[in-house]
Design a protein around this nucleic acid. Structure first.
Lengths: 128, 128, 128, 128
DNA sequence: GTGGTCTAGACCACA
DNA sequence: GTGGTCTAGACCACA
């Protein structure tokens, strides 16, 4: 699944796992119906405490991305892509709102922020 | 100085203090040269332990916003406004970059994000 | 790690710890990658409050000598020796500059200072 | 007497006063027999708490540089220059010893330190 | 009065 | 177990 962790980060490792799983879903790497590596496998692969992976999986189940069948293992839910995309858009809007609020407080005009957005989009486009 | 703390927040109290002081600087409430309430006064006002306030003040000193004179007290540095604004702009640009990256990953176009920005700016404007 | 504290010293305990850790690094006793005793262990060993040790460790982390992994413990950074040596040399040069300035002010010639240096080097050499 | 203070420094102000007085003696600005400004005058001139100046004067008396005649005021002792120079040389030697010890610990050769001394002497010479 | 340091002890999230 | 945060309270040098 190619999950990359930064053990130094202030962000808890289990949250990093949750976040990266969502990223893989958005990238189409993790697909509805996929069987997820067991907690043990994953913890071995990431050289991380099994409890930590377990915590991440539980969170992903709670959010409806993962579903566990007793004795069979954990699988990616049917509607993952839709689910994650919808929430991501919601989250992005919220982030934008906070950003605009802060920018406004420092006296930055709408035009300026939109210029930034434009510039960063070009930068992202060039990488591809 | 009207600092409001949220004791239920995940964010440490001392960080909340640091953050709010910066906000007050941006609002022009806290001005260069001001004498800052003593650690004891502030801790009494916030009903928080003096050590916690001290930790916040030291961080603010380390960041160059505060300067303390032995036995006299703590004061707001000369170049605060400039300093905080400069850093804030830098931080906002970085946030925008991350936001754009994420938006791009979900397949959202530049135009869409700029519409959001526009809309939120109007919303902020109406509040005034 | 054999840290010796002088509780009567004017120098704060946490600074003494920081300083001694650096000395151990220069001596090659503390090596990159080493796991550092936990805050609790160290505080027990030094019969000092955990908070005090914590303060020292955080300073060492801030200076880039230590790195801590959540829930796992604190470790010595990869480039410690280089880092500490580089800073030490810089500091020694600065000390030399101040010394020369003072010596010059009292009317002591360059030759004289160099004689002192020579003599003290011999003295250090004899100890070995 | 042209005393310059840095209220920001970690070094206590009273120590800074003591140190600067010694420097003025070495420069020949403060001479044996001189009448010293009263604590009040000096504290006004330095915009510093009288207690602070008083503490500095007491220290200077203790060290034999100043002498007070009841009702007449405080004066510079007869043998100041000799006294201060002698002690300064002693102190410089001690500093050199510590410096050499540290330099040796980092693996710096005697030749290197002497080069530094030479270079800084040139730098000081050029200023004149 | 002012900040700096320290102790003793507690609770918490995380691994 | 590991570090992070916080409280309550104390003592100190300095101004």
């Amino acid at each position: 699944m190619h999950i990359m962790l930064d053990p130094t980060s202030r962000q808890p490792i289990y949250e990093q796992i949750v976040q990266q799983v969502k990223a893989r879903v958005l990238q189409g790497v993790v697909i509805a119906g996929d069987k997820v590596p067991s907690v043990r496998e994953m913890s071995a692969e990431l050289t991380v405490n099994p409890n930590t992976v377990s915590k991440a999986y539980k969170e992903l189940e709670r959010e409806g991305l993962f579903i566990t069948f007793r004795g069979k293992g954990t699988f990616v839910s049917e509607n993952v892509l839709q689910l994650v995309q919808k929430r991501e858009v919601k989250s992005l809007k919220l982030q934008t709102e906070k950003l605009v609020q802060s920018a406004h407080d420092v006296g930055i005009e709408s035009t300026e922020v939109k210029k930034w957005v434009e510039a960063f989009y070009k930068k992202v486009g060039e990488k591809e």
